[in-house]
Design a protein around this nucleic acid. Structure first.
Length: 485
RNA sequence: CGGGGCGUGGCGCAGUCUGGUGGCGCGCCUGGUUUGGGACCAGGAGGUCGGAGGUUCGAAUCCUCCCGCCCCGACCA
């Protein structure tokens, strides 16, 4: 295998020059998304939507494996429903979009366009649940939600976004906590196995909790510019929503009791996270497991004569065989573009493997396979193509994860002094592991001075008791601070 | 929602200060030569200069208001 150095693409701003511009260039130029007429409402283009479909398909399977089933609830939520849980409404009303006119007349009661569906779904649960035999209830829905954000960026924060939201009811506090953690683990596993995006999982601080939740857990990924991205959340809602929405049932002792609820979700933000986790100055690098196209075949025309005679039929045959082996293969048979252009174009779009087939290859009964991540070239006999392609895709998938894991580790700095904290946060940023007294005032002060917030309190936090990075009071365990997207 | 920047063929920009027949690059279309890392030549199409008012003989250019986008801050998946 030979390696080639990375050529730069003129369409894409180098990451080192302007990370945020790089991200925007990549998303637009690779046709993942485009801006629409309404601020914050992007169009997810076919290539981007294919990624979402791949994410959906696998995540949906994982969700169903936990026992949840899919359903669909309305997008309009009556104002009075939303207002039943005090913290919930306080948290979400600032970013709610309201419908006040329908069919030309003012509505008696304004309808919120769902920012999340706890209010709607819990209201229905109140109607559906009456007996201990009805539990647990585990319903998931795939839908769009609207949150009127001030600052928007494609995939990372949009006014309207797509997600899945699961809502469950359980007989005991323990079961609810188990469910919350189970889904957190489902998300963590998905991000690592499918997106090759390593994450840190753990509970959020009180300040960072979901509006109305008893406890919020999250997975956090680290982006190339040293900022953390919340990639999924799982909430233990305790009995607060059950109480607010009047969900109760008769238990085995014929007592009226309230169930315990959870909710959990991941969004199209995952796509943004994946773009930033793997992309380079040439554009996207897509993990093979979710790449809409895993292999692109670029036929090389002969010096003289028609490529229809020898090259294209061969290329079609290879496509057929690779497809038969279960791979997603695209043949770029445009005769209007030169091979060099196609190389650059498909690299920008992040296709994991390129297959070149030209006169010399046909002669030797071989083809050339080139990896997107390191541009390593391999000359492969035709008979071994499908097997080698599958091997290379698997290697690429796991190399992406290893590389991202190394980056995550390199981006995590253990600090023990406040000055050190500020220095790192002003420099390379990333995750800062340190003690924290758990006082919200201290957390707020740290945010004020450094823009960093508590991202998660990792599982092994209790193993590292110490003192608060800012005030010096005792810390029960280490937490991770970072500037967040 | 505060501070800053920007709206000119599909995209990126010049022209605006100092008013006087809207231009460049890329892309697109046609024809030809090309094709193993972003080809070249020739010809061609495409614009109510973000919108509405105003000033002026005359407005992309000056004035007023509005809209949108981007960046930086306070809220968020």
């Amino acid at each position: 295998m030979m390696e080639k150095k990375t050529p730069t693409l003129k369409e894409i701003t180098p990451r080192s020059q302007d990370y945020s511009q790089w991200y925007q260039d990549v998303v637009l130029k690779t046709e993942l998304a485009d801006y629409g007429p309404v601020k914050g409402c992007m169009i997810i283009r076919p290539y981007g939507y294919a990624l979402w479909e791949a994410i959906q398909a696998d995540m949906d399977r994982r969700i169903k494996e936990t026992g949840a089933v899919n359903a669909y609830f309305p997008m309009f939520i009556p104002k009075s429903f939303l207002e039943k849980e005090k913290d919930h409404v306080e948290g979400f009303s600032p970013e709610c979009a309201w419908v006040t006119i329908g069919g030309g007349t003012e509505l008696e009661e304004p309808l919120a366009i769902r920012p999340t569906s706890e209010a709607m779904i819990c209201s229905m649960y109140a109607k559906w649940v009456g007996s201990w035999r009805d539990l647990p209830v585990m319903i998931n829905q795939w839908c769009n939600v609207v949150r009127w954000e001030k600052v928007t960026r494609p995939f990372l924060r949009t006014t309207e976004f797509l997600w899945q939201e699961g809502h469950t009811l359980h007989a005991t506090a323990e079961e609810a906590e188990e469910e919350t953690l189970r889904m957190l683990e489902v998300y963590r596993g998905f991000c690592e196995e499918m997106l090759a995006m390593p994450v840190v999982a753990g509970p959020k601080s009180e300040a960072e909790k979901f509006a109305g939740a008893k406890r919020t857990y999250a997975i956090e990924a680290m982006m190339g510019d040293g900022r953390a991205l919340q990639a999924g959340t799982s909430h233990n809602l305790g009995q607060r929503f059950a109480e607010a929405y009047g969900i109760e049932y008769l238990d085995k002792n014929m007592q009226r009791v309230r169930p315990w609820s959870t909710s959990w979700g991941v969004t199209t933000r995952l796509i943004g996270g994946m773009v930033m986790t793997h992309g380079d100055d040439s554009g996207l690098i897509l993990p093979p497991r979710v790449a809409p196209i895993q292999i692109v075949i670029v036929p090389i025309p002969p010096r003289k004569g028609d490529w229809n005679e020898a090259i294209l039929p061969r290329a079609r045959e290879l496509q057929r065989r690779l497809r038969a082996a279960g791979l997603r293969v695209h043949l770029d048979d445009r005769d209007t573009q030169q091979p060099g252009f196609k190389y650059a174009d498909w690299e920008m779009r992040g296709v994991p493997l390129r297959l070149e087939i030209g006169p010399k290859d046909v002669e030797k009964n071989q083809a050339v396979l080139v990896r997107r991540d390191n541009r390593a070239k391999a000359f492969v006999p035709e008979g071994e193509l499908a097997a080698r392609a599958a091997e290379l895709l698997a290697a690429l998938q796991s190399d992406l994860l290893s590389r991202a894991r190394r980056f995550l580790a390199d981006s995590t700095t253990r600090v023990s002094a406040w000055d050190e904290f500020k220095d790192v946060m002003n420099g390379k940023r990333g995750f800062l592991a340190c003690g924290w007294c758990r006082d919200a005032a201290c957390e707020a002060a740290i945010k004020e001075e450094t823009k960093a917030t508590v991202r998660v309190m990792p599982r092994d936090a209790g193993e590292r008791p110490g003192v608060c990075i800012r005030c010096g009071r005792p810390s029960p365990g280490e937490v991770l601070f970072a500037q967040a997207y």
